[in-house]
């Protein structure tokens, strides 16, 4: 009799206990279906770096205009401050206010462009250069550079045209008629040429006021200045995660030059625009990471005659114009 009583007690206890447990599970199952706020212990956090450099911020956005371009990629400004933006195969010319002035279609996806003093437009396609005159009519199509080529930048001077080829990691020098003169930047220890290190297709070239080539060796975070024959003239390098340098495998992704020889640089990863002087010291910050969308790619930059910084924000489909703040900062 006693035994059965114990048995019954045990049975009831087990049932009550397990039902309580199952109820707990049921309730927690329903609750866990609600979305949990993110709390990532493995967050890759670069907020500190994103905020650093605010004291250098001395530019402000003065104007922007929208683009009808979901494949916006290349940017250029001519001596009359007209803005050229590519959209896939298309090239559009805008005035400073953003009014579309003229359009044309190139023979392929436009990866980079530059405009010379005669308003001729040089378009770097994936492996060839397409030249339009000021009426947007094709003048010439230069010979293809082959399947290894992957052009990322073009700089047009008074007599020379430099084309950056990230695929073959060299800069091609042409005359304006499209004759290939020589290639620059292959590793050559005897000439102290370090060789371009381009791990991904970010490889920019510029021409300074003296007509010399500057190439951005992004893998080394280095700016290199070359004579037309390909010998290294000078260089500076700034590798750092902090505001005064460049980091990652290919930065600065894009660059432009101010009349005094200072560099306007645009980075990927931490999207920001800065100005470094001719020997590489940080001078100013144009735009901070919080001024761009989180997942945007590095922005193209250009400089107009008023020393304004023109920015192509492809993610927002906008041209944004920055200018030095007035007065003491």
């Amino acid at each position: 009799m006693r035994q059965t009583k114990n048995d019954k007690f045990l049975t009831v206890t087990i049932i009550v206990l397990s039902l309580a447990g199952l109820t707990y599970f049921g309730v927690s199952a329903i609750q866990s279906d609600h979305r949990i706020q993110r709390d990532n212990p493995f967050e890759y956090n670069i907020d500190n770096f994103a905020q650093s450099g605010a004291s250098y911020l001395s530019y402000e956005q003065v104007h922007d205009f929208p683009l009808q371009a979901d494949q916006a990629h290349a940017l250029g400004v001519d001596d009359w401050d007209r803005i050229y933006v590519s959209d896939g195969n298309k090239i559009d010319m805008y005035d400073e206010q953003g009014r579309l002035l003229q359009s044309a279609t190139a023979a392929g996806f436009i990866r980079a462009l530059d405009v010379d003093v005669n308003k001729n437009i040089y378009l770097a396609l994936e492996s060839a250069v397409d030249v339009l005159d000021s009426t947007f009519t094709r003048q010439a199509m230069w010979p293809d550079l082959g399947s290894l080529a992957f052009l990322t930048s073009i700089a047009v001077g008074d007599t020379d045209v430099y084309v950056a080829d990230a695929g073959q990691q060299v800069v091609w020098r042409y005359d304006k008629a499209g004759h290939l003169l020589n290639k620059i930047g292959e590793k050559d220890d005897s000439q102290d040429v370090p060789g371009f290190l381009i791990p991904s297709p970010y490889f920019d070239v510029l021409i300074d006021s003296d007509g010399y080539l500057w190439a951005v060796n992004t893998g080394r975070h280095q700016f290199e200045n070359y004579l037309p024959d390909g010998s290294l003239r000078s260089s500076w390098q700034k590798s750092s995660m902090s505001i005064d340098g460049f980091s990652g495998c290919c930065n600065p992704a894009h660059a432009a030059m101010l009349p005094d020889g200072a560099f306007v640089t645009s980075e990927k990863g931490l999207l920001r625009i800065k100005i470094h002087n001719a020997i590489g010291e940080l001078q100013a910050v144009v735009a901070m990471p919080d001024q761009f969308d989180n997942d945007a790619d590095a922005v193209e930059v250009a400089v107009n005659s008023k020393e304004q910084i023109i920015v192509l924000d492809a993610k927002r489909q906008q041209v944004r114009i920055f200018q030095k703040k007035e007065g003491p900062t």
Binding site: Y44, P199, S247, G248, C249, C250, N251, K268, G269
Partner: peptide, 8 residues
Amino acid sequence: KGCGAFGN
């Protein structure tokens, strides 16, 4: 994330 942000 680090590789994607700054690298390839």
